[in-house]
C-alpha cells in the first residue's frame, strides 16, 4: 500500500521544469503529465507552445493533455468562444471529470505523476484568484470556496487513478 504524502513537500520550478533541457528531460525518471483547462485564457495560449512545453516532459503526455484541453473547451463552449461564462455545476463536474479522464489516460500511458494546472491564469486559477472569481455560490466569495474547484478536480483525479498512485 502506498503511503500518501499528504501535501508534505513542494516541487519547485527550478527542479521540475525550468532547468530541464529537452535532453535532460528525456532522461528524467518520472514522466509527468500536466493537465490544463484554459478557461477564459484559451485565446491567450497557443497550442503549439503548450505542446512544446509539455514535450520537455513527455511527448505522449503532451498529446494526452492537449486532447483533454481541446475536447473539453470545444464541447462546452465551441471553438469560437471568446470568453467563458461562469461554469455551471454540471460544467464544473464535466471539467473535473476531464481532469480525471486525462489523468487516467496519462497513467495508462506510463506517466508516474499527474499535475493539475491551477496556475498561470488557467481555469482553476480563475477560480482561485478572487479578481477573476466573482461567483456568489459555494465556489466563490471566500478562499475556501475559491479553492473548492481545484479540490474537486483533485478528488476526481484521485478516484480515477486509485489510491496507490
Amino acid at each position: 500500500m502506498r503511503r500518501r504524502a499528504s501535501l508534505d513537500f513542494v516541487i519547485p520550478d527550478a527542479v521540475m521544469f525550468d532547468t530541464l533541457s529537452p535532453a535532460a528531460a528525456a532522461n528524467f525518471q518520472a514522466a509527468v503529465t500536466r493537465l490544463a483547462e484554459a478557461g477564459a485564457r484559451l485565446r491567450q495560449i497557443a497550442l503549439p507552445d503548450l505542446s512544446q512545453t509539455l514535450d520537455l516532459i513527455s511527448r505522449r503526455a503532451a498529446l494526452v493533455a492537449i486532447e483533454a484541453l481541446d475536447l473539453h473547451w470545444n464541447r462546452l463552449h465551441g471553438p469560437d468562444a471568446a470568453w467563458i461564462d461562469a461554469p455551471s455545476v454540471t460544467e464544473r463536474h464535466e471539467v473535473a471529470d476531464g481532469f480525471a479522464a486525462g489523468a487516467r489516460r496519462a497513467v495508462d500511458a506510463g506517466a508516474d505523476r499527474v499535475e493539475v494546472h491551477g496556475a498561470n491564469g488557467y481555469l482553476l486559477w480563475q477560480f482561485i484568484n478572487p479578481e477573476t472569481n466573482l461567483r456568489t455560490d459555494d465556489y466563490g466569495g471566500s478562499p475556501e470556496n475559491n479553492i473548492r474547484f481545484a479540490k474537486l478536480a483533485g478528488e476526481k483525479v484521485r478516484a480515477a487513478i486509485g489510491p496507490s498512485r
Binding site: R113, V116, G118, W125, N129, S142
Partner: peptide, 28 residues
C-alpha cells in the same frame, strides 16, 4: 502522485497577484 500547480505573484497571470498573505494562508 497528484500535483497541484499554483502560481506565485509576479507571473504572467491575467488578474495579477495573490491578494495577500492572509488569503494565501486560507488557501493553504
Amino acid at each position: 502522485m497528484i500535483v497541484l500547480r499554483l502560481s506565485q505573484d509576479g507571473v504572467d497571470d491575467f488578474g495579477g497577484a495573490w491578494p495577500g498573505t492572509d488569503y494565501a494562508e486560507a488557501i493553504g
